[in-house]
């Protein structure tokens, strides 16, 4: 396992280097002068020169990249032009909210998806199975942000059961109950598409596993059906399920941007969109960097989890 871990960590190096180049290049994609874009056409010549020097834009590209990477490695992501504060503090502050949202959505989609998938696989072509097939088609076709708005209108505005937006109530809130109440709608919205994907894959894998000879043997031995399905079936079907849950974790991190915007959730997504509209490039770079890094780490964790679940992978 240690050798596998070392090899997997080594593989991270080129990916991280590539990710850093892409994020660095974002600033240089713009066909015009980034300083002009950030400051607008009204800025004075001195302001432009000052910002150009501050961002190091007067240096050759590779020098700029080296300098930027050096700063990033020391945890210095620059200063936000719009908020006039260090980018790292701002992004990390907001990242907690994004983690709470995506973590809850991932938990929700894994639990509901696996449960639904197992139930569909044990009773193929039942009403539940058919409903789950229709739901998965709908889930893949529905814009997340629209589902969010519809849920908000029904449960927050019409029925008044849940708060419509934000993470805590403006007055008198701040405790766990308040957070949970605010979390329900965005987490359900974000999880909706993933539930259906995880459920379909769990169903397919479980159907294949339940058709194996050892399952027949277990049944013949008189093992209780519940144990056959869960201990003999689900346990062996877990590897592809873990894969898809890992992929969904990344999808949720990205999808959170839209959900956060719908529900005014104070996460990295809303910060990034505000940063783009305010032309605050260092802030946008910081947001993308933190989310991309956590995505890479999630993928690493999923790979390590496979190796732990299936020893064959370690020795490949």
């Amino acid at each position: 396992m240690r050798r596998y871990l070392a090899r997997r960590l080594l593989l991270l190096v080129p990916v991280l280097a590539g990710v850093s180049v892409v994020i660095f290049m974002v600033l240089h994609l713009s066909p015009g002068d980034p300083v002009e874009i950030m400051l607008g056409s009204q800025a004075t010549q001195e302001d432009r020169a000052r910002l150009r020097a501050e961002l190091g834009l007067d240096q050759p590209l590779h020098v700029q990249y080296g300098r930027w990477l050096g700063h990033v490695a020391r945890g210095d992501l620059g200063r936000s032009l719009w908020m006039k504060r260090p980018v790292l503090d701002e992004v990390l502050g907001r990242f907690k909210a994004t983690l709470v949202l995506t973590g809850t959505a991932l938990l929700l989609s894994s639990l509901a998806g696996v449960a639904l998938g197992v139930a569909s696989a044990t009773r193929p072509n039942s009403v539940l199975d058919r409903l789950s097939a229709v739901a998965s088609l709908f889930g893949a076709s529905m814009p997340t942000f629209w589902l969010g708005i519809v849920l908000m209108v029904i449960f927050a505005l019409w029925l008044g059961w849940l708060p419509a937006s934000g993470m805590y109530a403006a007055y008198g809130g701040g405790d766990l109950r308040d957070l949970l109440a605010h979390l329900v709608l965005p987490a359900v919205t974000l999880a909706a598409a993933s539930v259906t994907i995880i459920a379909r894959l769990t169903r397919a894998t479980m159907l294949e596993t339940l058709g194996q000879d050892y399952i027949r043997t277990a049944r013949a031995k008189g093992v209780v059906e519940r144990a056959v399905v869960l201990r003999h079936g689900l346990k062996n079907a877990l590897i592809p399920i873990v894969t898809v849950v890992g992929v969904q974790a990344g999808y949720l991190l990205g999808g959170a941007v839209l959900t956060e915007t719908v529900f005014a959730w104070p996460g990295v997504g809303t910060l990034m969109v505000q940063g783009i509209l305010a032309r605050d490039f260092p802030l946008v770079q910081g947001c993308v960097l933190v989310v991309a890094l956590s995505f890479v780490l999630v993928n690493l964790a999923v790979d390590l989890l496979y190796a732990w679940l299936d020893p064959r992978i370690r020795y490949e």
């Binding site: 892409v22 994020i23 999808g255 989310v291």
Partner: peptide
């Protein structure tokens, strides 16, 4: 290595 929509947003931020 990037979440799909995040990278699209980052590119639009640049362009």
């Amino acid at each position: 290595a990037f979440p799909y929509i995040l990278l699209a947003i980052a590119i639009v931020a640049g362009l």
